[in-house]
Design a protein around this nucleic acid. Structure first.
Lengths: 216, 216
DNA sequence: ACAATTGATGAATAGGTGTTCATTCACAAA
DNA sequence: TTTGTGAATGAACACCTATTCATCAATTGT
């Protein structure tokens, strides 16, 4: 949000920063720009100006624009995974409780932020023509699926559910989650995060009727 | 290739076409290019070359690139709506049969074509920063939701189902459909259309257990 | 047959973008 | 203080892209 104040050249003391600091600063400016202007209209000028730095700064720290975008998508993925881990760490130790925590995490304010979702979709929109993006997105899905499969299997055992096709159920859940994100992004009458979360929980209740209290 | 020999024999009937014909030809070249290169890398040169025409042709028929892209998205939406109408027209006259037809249509070869899905996502990725795209996408969703609500209400009455929140159910169904599309686009082990359709049908079976035969 | 009309051309234009690199300058070690 | 290091600059460069427009030629009307 707060736009970085462009540093006056005259004002001393605003120079030099560790590499890691600048890189993160530039990545955040990139996310901001993609959310505001879209991926196609995001230029290095926009990014460096928003960061209050000079023209060549991105090439200095990332070598190329392509590299900046790859690292931006990577950052987004790590940010997402971290939110999941954090949610699981705080979750109760029951399968249902952990599953609920995992799926609620998708709709937390810090994850389902409209800006971040816009950036996710911007990259998804290029997935077919950019193998580098596809790789990162596939890795994220793969990791998510592994966690989800584990929890679903545990819950099926825990509740002695029969006739549940876990792989297909996992597909349904991940698809539902992604589709709800699209709703958050597009919907006219601003679908709210809470509403999306409720929809997801309601679905889980219907699949696991013995554990409704965990999904309420 | 050989060309520009200014003799009378210029080429076979390669000149002149009605406005509508050229426009459609250019829109199709645009879709092709977006699917192959992405929205950001699609240039007017690519489009006109792919159509076998000259530089200025897009500006002649569409005035601007922005216009071409808007009309391309519009075409995609009309194409989609048409597929839905066609599916409904051929459907049996029962609520369950019509619902099944509507949702199966999302995964027909001509609709869930990997190229078209890539283009949909390319535009969705810019929805936040381009009001014109957002408008078209919202209209499509709105129309879809109206049809879906009608069918769901009819089916609830038909089967005397209780405790069904139709608006929420409609949200779940549309989200699931969109999410399955993302799976088709990204998934590593190529999720197949048939698999996605089965997932959707299986979900409908779970919601409407008295009508499973319509969803099998 | 002869204009008139209009689709189509493609070279030229103007504006913008990513990248480079010689140079500057903050900072800390000697 | 002096000096070495490397972060940061920003003008210059080469490239690309959307758009224009004078020109051409196929079709239509008379």
């Amino acid at each position: 949000m707060s736009e970085s104040i462009p540093v006056s050249v005259k004002a001393p003391g605003r120079r030099r920063a560790a590499k890691g600091v600048r890189k993160r600063q530039l990545i955040e400016a990139t996310i901001e720009s993609i959310a505001k202007r879209g991926l196609g209209e995001t230029t290095l000028s926009h990014v460096s100006t928003a960061a209050g730095l000079s023209q060549g700064i991105v090439n200095l720290h990332f070598t190329s624009k392509e590299n900046l975008l790859n690292e931006t998508l990577n950052f987004l993925r790590e940010d997402y995974d971290q939110a999941l881990q954090q949610a699981l760490a705080k979750a109760p130790d029951t399968p249902a409780g952990r599953l609920a925590a995992l799926l609620r995490a998708d709709f937390k304010a810090s994850v389902a932020d409209r800006k971040k979702i816009a950036v996710w979709f911007a990259f998804w929109g290029e997935v077919k023509s950019r193998p580098a993006y596809r790789k990162i997105c596939q890795d994220r899905v793969k990791n998510y699926n592994e966690i989800l499969h584990g929890l679903l299997n545990a819950l099926v055992v825990d509740g002695q559910y029969a006739n549940i096709d876990v792989p297909q159920l996992a597909d349904t859940i991940t698809s539902l989650a992604d589709g709800l994100w699209l709703n958050l992004l597009i919907s006219a009458r601003g679908m709210k995060r809470a509403e999306a979360e409720r929809t997801m929980m309601q679905y889980l209740c219907s699949v696991f009727p013995k554990h409704t209290e965990a999904f309420s």
